[in-house]
């Protein structure tokens, strides 16, 4: 009990490791979800009727898949895809294993948010691009994304916060992280102080993420 403080049952080291695990899960799963979600979101926009790559087939294929994935609560998704998690991560339990369901959860979420952000971009801008003879990739990278950037930043802020929350839930399957500490010590062992500290930590993390996101987005918009 020598390293514990504030009457908590956990040591400062455990708390630090918890933070590290959370950070690891959130960053890695954010990276993969963005790699999948961003292109999907763009596809959802440009394959829409009347848009630059109008394609009913692709749109009508992607749209329901994303809807279905989006409608499954994370805690169920976590359990439901365990076999898949085993194949991809080699194990169903642990911090790295948690990344698989986290990506399944966040990628469609990001796709939807990206779609919404890019739909906000004025159609007139796309028209101007088309009138200049811009290619499809040029329209995406030189018009759509720069014009939607401020909104995209908020999108990724929301997604990151969603991942912090989900990663805490992943603690239920022994994924580690701040959430795991809260469940194992705070909830199961009635360690109120640990509960308070971990919850406060999560609140602070979310606050910092949100205000950073808002600030960056605003800065871009104000230009």
């Amino acid at each position: 009990m020598s390293n514990t403080f504030w009457g908590m049952e956990i040591t400062a080291e455990q708390l630090l490791i918890g933070f590290g695990d959370t950070l690891y899960m959130v960053t890695v799963s954010l990276l993969f979800s963005a790699l999948i979600g961003l292109p999907l979101g763009i596809l959802l926009v440009i394959t829409r009727k009347g848009h630059i790559l109008d394609n009913t087939w692709v749109f009508n294929f992607l749209n329901p898949i994303i809807n279905i994935l989006r409608s499954v609560p994370f805690i169920i998704l976590l359990v439901a895809i365990i076999p898949l998690t085993r194949i991809i991560a080699g194990s169903a339990i642990g911090t790295t294993a948690a990344i698989v369901p986290l990506v399944f959860y966040a990628a469609p979420y990001i796709a939807r948010l990206v779609e919404n952000s890019l739909l906000e971009v004025d159609k007139g801008i796309i028209e101007a691009a088309q009138s200049m003879g811009a290619t499809v990739p040029q329209i995406i990278f030189k018009f759509l994304i720069p014009e939607g950037l401020s909104s995209l930043i908020l999108t990724f802020t929301t997604a990151t916060i969603g991942l912090v929350g989900a990663s805490a839930m992943a603690g239920a399957v022994g994924a580690g992280g701040v959430g795991d500490l809260a469940i194992t010590y705070g909830y199961q062992r009635f360690d109120t102080m640990t509960m308070i500290v971990t919850v406060a930590a999560l609140v602070i993390i979310v606050q910092i993420l949100q205000s950073t996101g808002n600030m960056v987005s605003k800065q871009i918009r104000r230009r």
Partner: peptide, 15 residues
């Protein structure tokens, strides 16, 4: 590229 166009709402890139 040989046909320029201007618009009622200008359609400039705000970014």
């Amino acid at each position: 590229k040989k046909i320029g166009m201007i618009f009622q709402h200008f359609n400039l890139l705000n970014s």
